[in-house]
Simulated scan of single mutants.
Amino acid sequence: MTLAMIVAIDEKNGIGKDNDQLAYISADLKRFKGLTTGHTILMGRKTFEALPKGALPKRRNIVITRQANYEAPGAEVVKSIGEALALCSDDQKVFVIGGGEVYKAFLPETDELYLTEIHHAFKGVDVFFPEYKSMGWEETLREGPFTDEKTGLTYNYSNLKRTGKFDCV
């Protein structure tokens, strides 16, 4: 199994504010859909609850939560990272889609990063993507810069592949 993360980050690795993402960039949302459709997606409870229409279609949705008896219509619910990985061990590719705690927990096991790097530092950010740059990555694709017509935000895409395993100490 290839474990991948997909995330939009600002200049300070910010990813969220007030239980929502920082920006809605149409092309980025289309890229997210194109990359994740047909695959398993792993997410935390808050990320699932932030999805406007619930479970994402044409993907296997797995929600990780410590809440007892939590129900997520259209998704499978697990209590731990290990349980999530065991559930999708036969999958070809699995995408971790957030939030901050889930990214941090899975980062040491991640093989690929699909980043949307927004060239802006948002104010009031309260959720961050963990530090990843010193963990041994090779950039395999860089596209952009692009400018979103609706928001005026400039961004680029960067795909990274792990060059070595990271050991949490």
Rank of each mutant, 00 (worst) to 15 (best):
T2L: 11
T2N: 09
T2W: 05
A8P: 03
D10E: 08
D10C: 04
E11Y: 01
K12N: 12
N13I: 04
Y24M: 10
K30Y: 06
K30S: 04
G34W: 01
H39S: 11
L42C: 03
F48H: 01
E49T: 04
P52R: 05
G54Q: 12
A55M: 05
L56R: 11
R59Q: 03
R60I: 13
N61G: 10
I62P: 04
I64C: 07
T65E: 10
Q67N: 06
A68P: 03
E71P: 00
A72Q: 08
E76R: 14
E76K: 15
V77H: 03
K79S: 13
I81H: 11
I81S: 06
E83L: 06
C88K: 08
D91S: 06
F95P: 03
F95Y: 12
V96E: 00
V102Q: 04
Y103A: 02
K104S: 07
K104N: 08
D111L: 05
E112T: 02
L115T: 04
T116D: 05
E117Q: 14
A121V: 02
K123P: 07
M135A: 06
E138K: 15
E139V: 01
L141E: 06
R142L: 15
T147E: 15
T151L: 05
L153P: 02
S158I: 14
L160C: 08
T163V: 01
G164Y: 09
F166M: 04
